[in-house]
């Protein structure tokens, strides 16, 4: 039974690392960190709604995260989503979410689980949702990979190659909302962006191609999950923050590696 529990925990963490690695590279390449913050903070609002209705937490977070991501994306298209706007939206969503959750009976106790993750509470059903989400994210990214890279480099270059930059941005928006929904139980709404950015940033130095960077970011994320969970069991520290702390240590180690391209 213990083995079963451990396996679930590791599989949940590895799933998040697998989806966050390649998507995190795009977040770094396209400077979407604040976009990610706004989307992931909105997930708390999704949790509040899901508890109130009540509905499945994954569905609730996915829906609200997607709405937020689409709203931010639309504002960006019109040149309105500047630093400040995104900051306002991210923290407004978080605050309204927290206020909303406080109205739901008995939910207050569980709040940290959604802010910082509660990977130890991941059940079989959760694990199934996580891996379905991960598979969807990976399928999206692999399907659109070349188009996404081209659009990221230069949108006119993409248009000249008969691609539609708007559609490619939508793919990333959808993938981001999926990762948020998948990762909220594992690392929590506040640390999802960390799992996107830190492994990707750590992977930049030794990589020479986008594919190498995505693969390395995934590996670093997976290593951070293993190390963080080990530390969590060993020192009885919270799992989500331990995973992110491990990723940050790997990032610092990576700084010692000379940049290759």
């Amino acid at each position: 039974m213990l083995d079963d529990f451990l396996l679930r925990v590791f599989l949940a963490g590895l799933g998040v690392a697998l989806a966050a690695g390649p998507l995190g590279c795009f977040v770094v390449w396209r400077r979407m960190a604040y976009f990610g913050e706004a989307t992931s903070h909105a997930a708390i609002l999704g949790v509040a709604l899901a508890l109130a209705i009540p509905a499945n937490i994954f569905v609730g977070t996915l829906a609200v995260a997607l709405l937020m991501a689409l709203a931010v994306s639309a504002l960006t298209d019109r040149g309105l989503a500047m630093d400040t706007t995104l900051g306002v939206m991210a923290h407004a969503a978080l605050s309204f979410g927290l206020v909303g959750v406080s109205f739901v009976q008995g939910a207050r106790v569980n709040l940290t689980a959604y802010l910082f993750g509660d990977i130890l509470a991941v059940g079989r059903r959760d694990l199934a949702f996580i891996w379905i989400g991960v598979a969807a994210v990976l399928a999206l990214l692999i399907w659109r990979w070349s188009a996404l890279l081209t659009t990221t480099l230069n949108e006119d270059l993409a248009v000249a190659a008969d691609l539609n930059p708007r559609r490619e941005r939508l793919v990333l928006t959808l993938a981001l909302a999926l990762v948020v929904a998948v990762a909220i139980k594992v690392v929590g709404a506040l640390l999802i962006v960390a799992m996107l950015i830190i492994p990707a940033a750590a992977a930049r130095g030794p990589s020479r191609t986008p594919e190498a960077m995505a693969a390395l970011a995934t590996a670093i994320g997976a290593l951070a999950v293993l190390a963080g969970l080990w530390a969590s069991f060993r020192f009885d520290t919270p799992a989500g923050p331990s995973i992110v702390a491990a990723a940050a240590l790997l990032f610092v180690l990576g700084l010692a590696v000379p940049r290759r391209g």
Partner: peptide, 27 residues
């Protein structure tokens, strides 16, 4: 159409070799 943009939106954030770039998006 062959298009040559004024610049690429990059400051080294994305690692990219010349060979890989030539195959974007068509191999």
């Amino acid at each position: 159409i062959g298009y040559m943009p004024q610049r690429l939106a990059m400051d080294g954030r994305m690692p990219l070799t010349v060979r890989r770039f030539l195959s974007l998006p068509v191999r």
